Computed example of a mutant assay.
Amino acid sequence: MDIHRFNGKGLRSLNLSRNSLTGYIIPDIGKMEMLESLDLSHNQLSGEIPTSLAQIHTLSVLDLSNNNLSGKIPTGTQLLSFNPSAYAENDGLCGDPMPKCPEDRLRPPTTYPREKLNEKNGSIFSFMQEVAIAMGFGIIFGFWGVIGSFILKKSWRITFFSLLDAIGDWIYVRIVVFVSKCRRS
């Protein structure tokens, strides 16, 4: 095969780790559209991660650790979903999932992740925990509000059970009338 004509489009896995490679990751790496696994770890690669790498939607394994990469990890891509260990030991690399870049620290955040939101508000509970607690209190106070009033107020208890008896009698009469009409037909 002529190496100059090799484009790597059908390549599924590329492992060039521990080869003392220098230079930068080629900007056209995104043309390897079928690539599922890329390991370039433990080399001396430098420069930024090409944005074209984010165009490889089939990429499920990535290891760029232990190089000299720098700059911001391309945002808005699946590259942000990889474990931080995929980018470890690249002192100049920043951005999610690695530590923030210096320019990001100067800008105030516009949104807060859920974990940070609770720290910001000083709350020790998540939203769902707060909902569960509120429902628990509602059930307890609602239940004991009704039962407690029946225990403490004899007149309410008598009225309530009289109402239940009346409803039961009404339902019984309706069923008997309905059954007798059905038998005549």
Rank of each mutant, 00 (worst) to 15 (best):
M1D: 15
I3Y: 10
I3H: 13
H4I: 04
H4L: 14
R5A: 15
R5E: 15
F6L: 15
L14F: 03
N15G: 06
N15M: 01
L16W: 07
N19A: 03
S20C: 06
T22V: 13
T22I: 11
P27D: 13
D28E: 15
I29D: 02
E33V: 14
E33I: 13
M34L: 10
L35H: 03
L40F: 06
S41D: 06
H42P: 00
Q44W: 02
Q44D: 10
G47V: 05
E48T: 14
E48D: 09
P50F: 05
Q55T: 11
I56M: 05
H57Y: 11
S60N: 04
V61D: 11
V61Y: 13
L64T: 09
N67W: 02
N68M: 12
N68H: 14
N68C: 08
S70R: 06
G71M: 02
K72V: 08
I73P: 04
I73D: 08
P74S: 01
T75S: 10
T75K: 11
G76V: 08
Q78G: 05
L80E: 15
F82C: 01
F82A: 06
N83C: 09
S85V: 12
D91G: 13
D91I: 02
D96T: 14
D96R: 09
P97I: 03
M98A: 04
P99G: 00
P99T: 06
C101V: 07
E103R: 02
D104V: 01
L106N: 07
R107E: 12
R107I: 13
P108Y: 01
P108K: 07
P108E: 07
T110M: 05
P113Q: 06
P113T: 14
E115N: 11
E115A: 12
K116M: 04
L117I: 04
K120L: 15
G122I: 09
S123G: 00
S123I: 03
S123Q: 04
S126R: 10
S126E: 14
A132T: 15
A132S: 15
M135S: 12
M135L: 15
F141D: 06
F143K: 01
F143R: 04
F143E: 08
W144K: 00
V146S: 08
I147G: 00
G148M: 05
G148Y: 09
G148I: 03
S149E: 13
F150T: 01
S155Y: 00
R157Y: 03
F160W: 11
F160E: 00
F160D: 03
L164A: 14
A166C: 07
D169F: 15
I171W: 05
Y172G: 04
I175M: 07
V176T: 10
V177P: 00
V179N: 08
K181Y: 08
R183N: 12
R184C: 07
